[in-house]
């Protein structure tokens, strides 16, 4: 148990920007298992195995959110930052692909990306640098071992700054902070829904900061909007442009939602493999985003996300994965790869 690949990976604390030691370990580990392994220009740990023509990419990520959790095994649960999101998936990819080392039908490439929890630097590099698209892509994110994820919502970050002359507290004029709250309420009324779901757009107030220098006062509003399929980012942009001129709005990079197709050999292979383990498979659509939002439209091939773990533990101090669940995910992935071969 102490030598479990996943445990060794979690022992490298690797928040975004600090993936290099883990990347070095993974390149060595994949090479030891027979992969052609290297670090690419972005710092992604990459390993290719198998001599076939059909290309399968298993794309996980090495980085985690911050917040170190003591790595330990208690009651057959492995605790540690990244155990669910998403080193469990990446470790399972490496273990499953290792078992197809001698196959001559598939070329399997396992990629541990950098920066998924930040600006997706690793996935963007893959899109820019891979001239030949794969035939199938599995994204490494926690779906639970008996489920597959077909969809993720989109996302955009907004920063609004309101700057105005300072007034006496007894003045009728709203403060910059009050104006910021009004802006939040306007955007929420226009684009936010009270119902959280895959088909609604939901606005989160991330931060509200105020500053004053004696003459002027400033309020800064940081927002995140999670968007459904087909969301009109141009309409949002036009709305933000229509706000009063003393409100400076910065709209971040837009990430559209994705919903993958079910009618393909990749999905069928997962359904068969999960059923073979005695479970009833489930499709999931998520209210978060992942590198699938970027890689799906870029490669336009059968794609889904899969990995062990309960995603309600993502980013929490209680992050852990059941070792039995991890092992079942490895078996499912092995069977999927065998079926695709």
């Amino acid at each position: 148990m102490e030598n479990l690949l996943l445990k060794r990976m979690i022992e490298f604390y690797s928040p975004s920007g600090q993936e290099a030691p883990l990347a070095g370990f993974l390149v060595q580990e994949m090479a030891r298992r027979g992969f052609h392994a290297h670090l690419d220009e972005a710092g992604n740990a990459t390993g290719q195995i198998g001599a076939g023509a059909r290309k399968v990419y298993l794309v996980g990520h090495m980085d985690t959110v911050s917040g170190e959790i003591p790595v330990r095994i208690e009651e057959k649960k492995l605790y540690g930052r990244g155990s669910v999101d998403a080193k469990g998936s990446l470790a399972a990819f490496i273990e499953a692909a290792s078992s197809l080392k001698d196959n001559d039908k598939l070329s399997i490439t396992v990629i541990g990306c950098v920066g998924e929890e930040a600006e997706s630097k690793g996935a963007k590099h893959l899109i820019a640098s891979h001239q030949h698209q794969p035939d199938f892509v599995i994204i490494g994110e926690p779906s639970g071992w008996d489920s597959i994820t077909l969809g993720y919502k989109g996302s955009v970050n907004l920063v609004c700054q309101i700057t105005q002359e300072r007034h006496h507290g007894g003045h009728a004029e709203p403060t910059a902070a009050e104006r910021a709250v009004e802006i939040y309420q306007q955007i929420k009324a226009r684009f936010g829904s009270e119902t959280l779901g895959f088909e609604t757009s939901n606005l989160k107030l991330i931060a509200l900061n105020t500053h004053q220098n004696g003459l002027d006062e400033r309020a800064e509003l940081k927002l995140n909007l999670r968007t459904p399929l087909g969301f009109d980012f141009d309409l949002l942009h036009a709305f933000l442009e229509s706000l009063p001129k003393n409100i400076d709005v910065e709209m971040g990079e837009t990430t559209p939602a994705i919903k993958a197709e079910k009618q393909n050999p990749l999905v069928r292979s997962f359904l068969r493999a999960i059923r073979a383990q005695g479970a009833q498979p489930t499709f999931k659509v998520k209210t978060g985003t992942s590198d699938m939002n970027l890689l799906g439209p870029a490669w336009n091939v059968p794609i889904l996300a899969y990995g062990p773990g309960d995603s309600s533990l993502d980013h929490t101090p209680h992050e852990h994965v059941l070792i039995e669940e991890y092992e079942k995910a490895v078996i499912v992935l092995q069977q999927v790869l065998q079926a695709l071969a």
Binding site: E141, T149, Q280, T282, K284, V285, K286, S290, S311
Partner: peptide, 11 residues
């Protein structure tokens, strides 16, 4: 019946 489609949060 095909697998149910469930909504889930997180990644």
């Amino acid at each position: 019946l095909a697998p149910e489609e469930k909504e889930d949060w997180g990644e």
